[in-house]
Design a protein around this nucleic acid. Structure first.
Length: 576
DNA sequence: GCCGTTTTCGGCCCGACTGTTTTCAGTCG
C-alpha cells in the first residue's frame, strides 16, 4: 500500500474517531499523521523496513504499528472495525456546514438518522425540535446547509476564488475607515483548491459597523451566514463562502499571519512561541506572565521575534519552513518577473485558436524574449495532431518568423503522444529536427500504476525527449490523475537528465507543488508551461509560478528564467 | 495518540459566533 492510500485511511480514522466523540487530541494525532505520511518524499516502504518511521515527529508507537500493518498487509483491523461501527452516511453528513461530529452522533443515537436524505426528511417533519441542544433555527440552518452541499461542491479552483475575492476585497478597500486590508487564507498561500475566501481589514472601532454592513450587503452576496463585531461570514452568489475579519491596525500583522494559516503552520508557530514563553494569537504576541505586548509593525517583525527570517505565505504549510526559517535556510523564491518565456503552447496547426504570430505578439506584450510552440503530434487525431508533412510546413513558418523577429526567438517543439508501449509517435529523424520535445500521455489512462510508470519512464529515456508534460493527467475537481509513481518518474528524470513541467493550466497544476521540492533536490529542472490554446492562455503561466513558489523553487530551478542561448544549451543537454 | 531542558503523566493553540442556554456547548478556522 502506498503513502497516498495510507494517508487517506489515517484521515478517515481521525474522522471516525471524531464521530465517536473520542479525545480531540487523539483525533488530531491521526489527522496530523495523515498529513505527515502524505507529504513524505522518501519511500514509505523503506521507512517501515528500517523502523525509521518511529523517529518521525508525530508518529509514535501506536501509529507506527498501524502504518506498518497497512504497508505490509494492505489491511488494518483497527480501521476495519471502526468503519463497521458506524454507517458511512455519517461521514458524508460532516460536509453540512454547521453540523459537526457531536450533533451528528446525537442525531444518529436519538433519531437513527444515518444519511443526508434521512436528515432532510426529519427536518421537514420537525423531528429535531425535541432534541436537547437543537431548536428551530438549527433545523432551518441544517436544511440550508444540505441545499448548499447539493448545489456547490464547496471546493473551488484558484482562479475562480481569486476573482471572487478580488471583487469583494476591491470594494472593501475603498470603504471609509479601512486602514490596511488583505486577502488571507489559502488564497494568499496560493493553494490549487480553495475552500473559502478570507479577507482581513484594519479600522478604527467607529467604522467597524459600516464596514461589516458594506461587506454583508455587497452585490455579490447571496446569503448572510453570520454577522458579528469582528467577524462576518457570507455565501457569495458564485457559491463560495467568504469571511471578513475587522481588527485594529495595531493588530493587523498578527491577524494577517493568523488568518493566512495554514492551520498546521499556526499550531507549530504557537507551540514554538509557547516555548519562548510567548502567547501568540490573532491580536498579538504577549510575553511572560504579565503578558507584555510585543509590538510588530508587519509579519517580518513577528518572525524576527523568534529569530526567523520572513516566511512567504506560499510556504506556510508546516512542511519544513519553520525549521528552515530558524536556520536562515529559506529559499529565495521564484518571482513572476524572473520569467523570460515559456514552452508548450498550441496554435491553429493543432487545437489552438491563434496563429504562431499572434502568440508571439502576446508573449512580447508580457515582456518575454522567447516562446516554444508545441502542437500535438500525429496520433492525437482528436486534437488535429500534425503529421510529418505539416510539421515541416510549421518549421518553415517558424524559420521565416525567426528571420524577421528582432530580439525574440521561437523554439520549435512538439507535444508528442506517449503511446501505450512507451514509444513516441514520431521517428527519431523527425524528433531530432525539433528544438525540444514535450512527451505526454493522452490515451489509455486505465493502466495499473506499474504499467503506467514503466510507460512514462520509457518515454523519458528516449534520447529526444526534453520534458514530460502534465505528469499525472489530473483535472482538478473533475478527474483523478492516472495512477503513476511520481517519485519513480522524478528519479528517472534525474538519472536521464530530463525535465518535468509544471503544467500551469489552473485545472491541472501538475506537477503538484508537493513534489517540486523533491524534484529540485534531485536536480531535476522544471519548466513552467501554460499548455495555452489561445493567446490569453499564456497568462496561466503565472499560476505555475504560484505552484513553483509553493514547491520551494528558486530562479535557478526553473527553465523559463534562463535566457535564449542558455535555454538552447539546456535543451541540448537533455539529448546528451 | 504524541511528547518531554516542566520527561513516563498530564498536558496538548486559541478565540469568535450561533443557538441554545441563564453560563455554555458545538462548530469553525
Amino acid at each position: 500500500m502506498d503513502k497516498k492510500e495510507v494517508a487517506q485511511i489515517l484521515e478517515e480514522i481521525g474522522t471516525l474517531l471524531e464521530l465517536h466523540n473520542e479525545n480531540p487530541f487523539k483525533v488530531r494525532a491521526y489527522h496530523n499523521a495523515s498529513r505527515i505520511i502524505g507529504g513524505l518524499t522518501e519511500s514509505l516502504d523503506h521507512l517501515v523496513e528500517t523502523g525509521e518511521l518511529r523517529s518521525i515527529k508525530g508518529i509514535g508507537e501506536g501509529l507506527a504499528e498501524k502504518i506498518t500493518e497497512l504497508v505490509k498487509t494492505g489491511h488494518l483491523k483497527y480501521y476495519e472495525d471502526l468503519k463497521k461501527s458506524l454507517p458511512p452516511g455519517l461521514v458524508e453528513m460532516l460536509a453540512i456546514p454547521g453540523l459537526g461530529p457531536k450533533r451528528i452522533k446525537i442525531l444518529y443515537d436519538k433519531l437513527g438518522i444515518s444519511t443526508i436524505g434521512e436528515l432532510e426528511y426529519a427536518c421537514h417533519e420537525n423531528r429535531l425540535l425535541d432534541l436537547e441542544g437543537f431548536g428551530l433555527k438549527t433545523q432551518e440552518n441544517i436544511l440550508k446547509g444540505i441545499e448548499q452541499v447539493r448545489r456547490h461542491s464547496e471546493k473551488h479552483l484558484y482562479p475562480a476564488a481569486l476573482e471572487a475575492a478580488e471583487r469583494v476585497h476591491g470594494s472593501l478597500a475603498k470603504v471609509k475607515g479601512v486602514i490596511r486590508s488583505s486577502i488571507a487564507g489559502s488564497l494568499r498561500r496560493k493553494k490549487e483548491i480553495i475552500g473559502d475566501i478570507d479577507i482581513l481589514v484594519s479600522a478604527e472601532p467607529k467604522f467597524v459597523d459600516k464596514i461589516m454592513s458594506s461587506f454583508t450587503s455587497h452585490e455579490d452576496v447571496d446569503r448572510i451566514i453570520a454577522k458579528g463585531e469582528t467577524k462576518s461570514s457570507v455565501l457569495l452568489k458564485s457559491g463560495i463562502n467568504a469571511d471578513l475579519r475587522v481588527i485594529s491596525d495595531k493588530e493587523f500583522p498578527y491577524a494577517l499571519h493568523y488568518f493566512t494559516g495554514s492551520k498546521d503552520h499556526n499550531i507549530a508557530m504557537r507551540t514554538l512561541a509557547k516555548k519562548a514563553d510567548i502567547k501568540m494569537n490573532e491580536y498579538g504576541l504577549f510575553k511572560g506572565p504579565s503578558e507584555k505586548f510585543i509590538a510588530c509593525r508587519d509579519e517580518e517583525e513577528i518572525f524576527a521575534t523568534f529569530g526567523m527570517s520572513y516566511i512567504p505565505p506560499e510556504l506556510r504549510e508546516d512542511m519544513g519552513e519553520i525549521e528552515a526559517a530558524k536556520a536562515g535556510k529559506l529559499p529565495v523564491l521564484l518571482e513572476e518577473s524572473d520569467l523570460r518565456g515559456t514552452f508548450h503552447c498550441h496554435t491553429k496547426y493543432s487545437d489552438g485558436v491563434n496563429t504562431i504570430e499572434e502568440l508571439v505578439k502576446a508573449a512580447k506584450e508580457l515582456g518575454w524574449e522567447y516562446l516554444g510552440i508545441a502542437d500535438h503530434s500525429k496520433s492525437a487525431a482528436y486534437a488535429n495532431g500534425l503529421d510529418e508533412g505539416r510539421v515541416k510546413t510549421q518549421w518553415k513558418e517558424i524559420d521565416q518568423l525567426n528571420g524577421k523577429l528582432k530580439g525574440f526567438r521561437i523554439f520549435k517543439g512538439t507535444e508528442a503522444d506517449i503511446l501505450p508501449d512507451g514509444t513516441l509517435d514520431f521517428s527519431d529523424k523527425i524528433l531530432s529536427g525539433f528544438d525540444y520535445v514535450v512527451v505526454s500521455v493522452h490515451s489509455k489512462f486505465k493502466m495499473t500504476e506499474q504499467e503506467m510508470t514503466k510507460r512514462i519512464i520509457k518515454a523519458l529515456k528516449n534520447k529526444y525527449t526534453t520534458m514530460i508534460g502534465h505528469l499525472t493527467g489530473r483535472l482538478l475537481l473533475s478527474r483523478e490523475g492516472y495512477p503513476v509513481d511520481v517519485e519513480a518518474v522524478i528519479n528517472a528524470a534525474a538519472d536521464y537528465g530530463k525535465m518535468i513541467e509544471i503544467n500551469a493550466h489552473p485545472l491541472r497544476l501538475d506537477l503538484d507543488w508537493r513534489w517540486c521540492k523533491y524534484a529540485k533536490e534531485k536536480g531535476v529542472l522544471i519548466p513552467i508551461n501554460p499548455d495555452a490554446h489561445n493567446a490569453e492562455g499564456l497568462r496561466d503561466t503565472f499560476y505555475g509560478v504560484g505552484v513553483a513558489r509553493k514547491g520551494w523553487l528558486e530562479k535557478k530551478d526553473v527553465v523559463n528564467t534562463y535566457n535564449t542561448s542558455e535555454v538552447e544549451k539546456l535543451f541540448e543537454r537533455t539529448r546528451a
